[in-house]
Design a binder for these strands. Sequence first.
DNA 1: CTCAAACTTAAAGTTAAGTTAAACTTAAAT
DNA 2: ATTTAAGTTTAACTTAACTTTAAGTTTGAG
Lengths: 128, 128
Amino acid sequence: MKKKKYSISELASELEISPSSIRFYEEKGLINPERTKGNQRIYSMRDRARLKLILRGKRFGFSLSEISEMIGFANSEPEEKHQLERSLEYSEKKLSEIAQRKEELELIEKDLLEMKEKFIKRLQKLKE
Amino acid sequence: MKKKKYSISELASELEISPSSIRFYEEKGLINPERTKGNQRIYSMRDRARLKLILRGKRFGFSLSEISEMIGFANSEPEEKHQLERSLEYSEKKLSEIAQRKEELELIEKDLLEMKEKFIKRLQKLKE
DNA sequence: CTCAAACTTAAAGTTAAGTTAAACTTAAAT
DNA sequence: ATTTAAGTTTAACTTAACTTTAAGTTTGAG
């Protein structure tokens, strides 16, 4: 069991983002690291995992507030039936968004493949 | 053969974006519609196709300047060998970016599926 | 203890991608 | 011919997501 703790700059360089971005995410309510006696931030493995999730979400195209919403749902322990149903719906909605993105990805890929083929053919003609 | 021409607002409503966005894309050099005698923009099928490509690229996460670069490559008719090779490289680079995105998509999908399963299990426990 | 490196906050600055507003022109409908 | 809907340009405004700066504090090495 690793209990490693990170300073802000350690974590930043590991994740290849700037310390300021990490502070910015905190300001937006996406993470909440502990503090030392002297008020400096200390990040746990859990914090690091959460940051990775944030970055993945960003690369996918979610906005910070969407990510924040998702994290909220993921971390709440809703024992009330209605709450649970809402959370379930939410995750289904996001999953269908992902399905749509996948399709779009295929379309773009097709465009690019066609482009590539054209270039290849032209190159071959040049060699004749 | 359809030779339909569009006014800016027709095209905008068809693509579900605002006329101002279309003008903005033009300002950024992404399209270049013809003009009427009275200086109003007229869009051809070709322009419409290009706009669709722009929107697809955006949904994928490309920035406007990346899209602009892509369009440049797609539309150039490079007959010089070196140019062609550069274009080929470019399309391969973009294709590998897409492959990466696909993997990330899978990761996020996994996260969300886990979340969903959790919610479902809790709901079932409530019913016991 | 001292000093530099790393940290802190708060506020201002930046960039991308639009949107909105003002002032004017063109096209279409009656 | 007149009115109105749609279009034009230019410039200012907006929002998200950071980044930078300034001024001060904490930590770790020697």
